[in-house]
Amino acid sequence: MVDILIFVYENFFTSGIYPSNTTLQTRLFAAGFNEKEVNLALDWFDHLDQLSNQSGNSQPNETIRCLHAHEQEKISASVWGFLLFLEQNSIISAIQREWVLSSLMSLDVNEIDVERVKLITLMILWRQGQSSETLLLEELLHEHEFLLH
């Protein structure tokens, strides 16, 4: 799914417009992604929309979030630190942090790197239309230029 997120970022992000699922599906198939990958990605975006509609604006959260043992297996200290940095600096809310964590845990990889966290967070913010936070995170993404390789 990460490859699809990179494709969506590279092809649609700068326009500031998120395409309809039908348009996105057509473009993803044309780019050579298989049906299973495309459906997973579209389901992920739909799930984000549902979460956004349910939660509305979140208030600052004063609770402490600890990772479960199975989360600790995939989420390194640097990834967790980065997520906390984003939350503490009001780039993402506590609810958005949970969406990022949920998305990271659903990836079929053993360990998550910070660049994937940045990409997933960027996609969540973009999908929710939070442009100022998105611009800051985009700057962080390009700091490592992992998408250009």
Rank of each mutant, 00 (worst) to 15 (best):
T22W: 02
I4R: 02
Q88W: 02
D3M: 10
S93K: 02
I75R: 00
T22N: 09
L67G: 09
I75G: 00
S58G: 10
H47R: 09
T22C: 01
I124G: 10
W126Q: 06
F146M: 02
E71M: 04
Q72T: 13
L5D: 14
L119W: 03
Y9F: 15
D3P: 15
R27L: 02
L24M: 04
L51D: 12
D108F: 02
Q72E: 15
R127L: 02
P60A: 07
E71W: 09
I75T: 01
I4L: 14
E115C: 09
S132R: 12
H149E: 05
T121N: 02
L148R: 07
I120L: 09
Q25K: 07
W80E: 03
F45L: 10
S78I: 04
S15G: 15
V2E: 14
N34V: 05
F33H: 06
A69S: 11
Y18W: 07
H149S: 05
H144C: 07
A30F: 03
V100G: 01
E143Q: 12
T63P: 01
N39W: 05
A31K: 03
E133V: 09
E115W: 05
N57I: 13
Q130H: 12
G32F: 01
A41R: 06
I112Q: 00
A69Y: 12
D43Q: 13
F7M: 04
N61L: 06
Q54G: 14
L28T: 04
S102W: 02
N110P: 04
M105T: 02
L67R: 10
T134S: 15
